[in-house]
Amino acid sequence: MIDQQASSSPRGDAVPPSTDGLVLDRVAIRLAGRQLLALDHRVAPGDTLTVMGPSGSGKSTLFAFVAGFLDPAFEAVGRVCLNGRDLTLLPPRCRRVGLLFQDALLLPHMSVGDNLLFALPANVKGSRQRRAAAEAMLSDVGLAGHFSRDPATLSGGQAARVALARTLLAKPEALLLDEPFARLDQDLRATIRDLVFQTIRARKIPAVLVTHDPADAQAAGSALVEIGSGEGTTV
């Protein structure tokens, strides 16, 4: 019932089920009657939509909306579709949208390896296979052999790599990046940035990057939306 209501918009031109990538279908978010942003955009697989704007402009709100954590105080309309699936009404854990924050947010009570195994889907069976998958991902991000490390002992760059590995292990169909490089040193930032965007392109994952660093936008390469005026303006 609810699904039908939501997906049949009055204009009738619903996103066809076959559409690849991440589609923000006439998304608008309001708080206490004031419109924060409005956006209508498709992110193709391997592309990154960069959302820029000053603090308080609604970047995080958009992020929360796509990830499924939007505070009920906000009024949101429109749909989020991913590879033809309508995510709008799905709980966060069924969306298959990977998250990267400015902090690595590795679980401090687990080793690096356990953090990765925690992300590995349950359909990978057998402890040996699971460990092999995690170790392979670890070496993909350049950290082979760090499986048993305590996250607290990692450098900032290492932690960011583990965070990326963890996100990728869950096989996300889209990525949401919330200023993921902001806390890194200048040199490191470029390296990690390249790693992330290479991965996105190589794996053909559509991504949304929320940032206020123009260098990030440049590295992301594709579409840029600036918000802050109540509507998204494509540059």
Binding site: I2, Q5, A6, S9, P10, R11, R26, A28, Q35, A38, L39, D40, H41, R42, E75, A76, V77, G78, R79, T88, L89, A223, V225, E231, G232, T233, T234
Partner: peptide
């Protein structure tokens, strides 16, 4: 990409926001 007018939002907004 294109932006959506507030008016249009109002049009399709009511039901989907309830849902």
């Amino acid at each position: 990409p294109h932006s959506v007018s507030p008016k249009a939002l109002k049009l399709f907004g009511v039901r989907s926001s309830t849902a």
